[in-house]
Design a protein around this nucleic acid. Structure first.
Lengths: 232, 232
DNA sequence: GTACGAACGGTACTGGGTACCAACCTGCCG
DNA sequence: CGGCAGGTTGGTACCCAGTACCGTTCGTAC
């Protein structure tokens, strides 16, 4: 009678109804009815009315974690980038559903909040991984937090561009975006500068002597804590 | 009869009951009853059962936006830092309530998700501000996204440290953390492709000349064998 | 056939959230 | 004083998401 399994029919019915009448205007009974199942069956497959249109984040999170855990100290940055690719790839494979969901999350606050909460779970994963990689120094904990936030922000930036149809090659874009992140955060010079001083260099083609002079000026008291050096 | 206004009594009752029995185990009726008002009055003051324990994000967002808008091109980074201070300050003023909420959001998924959704609203504000400040180049949009994510991550990092009792001077810490962020992201406004030197200094009491020398050494091109030395 | 287990559908219940209405309290004017 | 307008309150009824429970069905193994 029904070749396609109930799970899939429920997803189809939900997407269709949300698209036709909106999220709040659709009841779970209606979704179940259109899918040709009982209301109970709906909740047996999806924990909530929102769940039915979201991807399998649990599975994806496991995949991301697996990719990260399979890396060494030296390939940590590569692993982070590839983990981000993994997530983007999954969304792209969804195709039309991903775009429909985007249209819904843009309009419905409850769905947007849920999407954001999911993102936070990925960010947590990245934070823990990067934190372990960087070591447990107080500063490392902060930078791990910043970098994890940047990683998911970069991914989401590219993802949204693709969802809006602003790019045709999202995988290439996520590579450049992630390269941006890793060059910003990945080049930290942790070698013996001494406790208390951190110098971060991000590729410069100007005269090292002039930069050094600027640093000396910046370090001269009385200075406020942590003044940025602007040598232009 | 009741000197304290209903709004406040509801907050007190909610915090107390959530603390005693947990969030899910407490009904709105019970909160209203303990506050000495009707159920209708509860929903008249707070849109949901969750709302009652969260700070006035709408007001805070306006304050943050006002602080950002009151800045010039030159003081944009300062404005971002002070906006972050503004938020942290507000949480600290809450005192015990902030810590109680933290205990609740740590245990209850629904509350945690809501907190995260609120954070996203601040991030959006920062993203728009930083994006305007950087200009609308494709790369600027990405970096604005990354920096906004880092700003709220830095703030939250310090906030959580304070909530856990890991620090006694969160305002100083947020300054350091924000300095970290602004030095990472703040130097690339006029150099389009991301080239530039970022030097971040976190309090050092050694000889500035020696530090400067170390920086100069660090900036020397790493290739030493066949490549001609590019010393200017 | 029978026994068993997995998936299903139905009913009843809890509780958050909304809509509506009736009872109040003000202050204000005649 | 009486009436009247606007604002706050409390109560009732309702919708619907989500949970618990139970009886049925169907496929499969024995």
């Amino acid at each position: 009678m029904s070749a396609t399994p109930a799970r899939e029919r429920l997803v189809r019915a939900a997407f269709a109804l949300f698209d036709e009448r909106g999220f709040e205007q659709t009841t779970v009974d209606e979704i179940a009815e259109r899918a040709g199942v009982g209301r109970t069956t709906f909740f047996r497959h999806y924990r909530s009315k929102e769940d039915v249109i979201f991807p399998d984040h649990d599975g994806l999170l496991s995949a991301v974690k697996a990719r990260l855990d399979a890396s060494t100290e030296q390939t940590a940055l590569l692993a982070v980038t590839e983990a981000a690719r993994l997530v983007l790839q999954r969304y792209i494979e969804e195709g039309e559903n991903a775009r429909l969901r985007y249209a819904l999350t843009s309009r419905v606050a409850a769905l947007r909040d849920r999407e954001i909460a999911s993102v936070a779970r990925y960010q947590r994963l990245f934070r823990e991984f990067i934190g372990d990689w960087m070591g447990v120094t107080p500063d490392g904990a902060l930078v791990a937090e910043l970098m994890a936030a940047a990683v998911v922000a970069a991914h989401n930036h590219v993802l949204r561009r693709w969802l809006r149809g602003d790019t045709t090659d999202p995988m290439a874009e996520v590579d450049t975006a992630m390269a941006r992140v890793t060059t910003i955060f990945g080049q930290r010079n942790s070698s013996g500068n001494g406790a208390g001083t951190v110098v971060m260099v991000v590729r410069d083609d100007r005269d090292p002597d002039r930069v050094a002079a600027a640093v000396r000026r910046a370090l001269r008291p009385p200075r406020r804590l942590s003044d940025p050096v602007n040598d232009r």
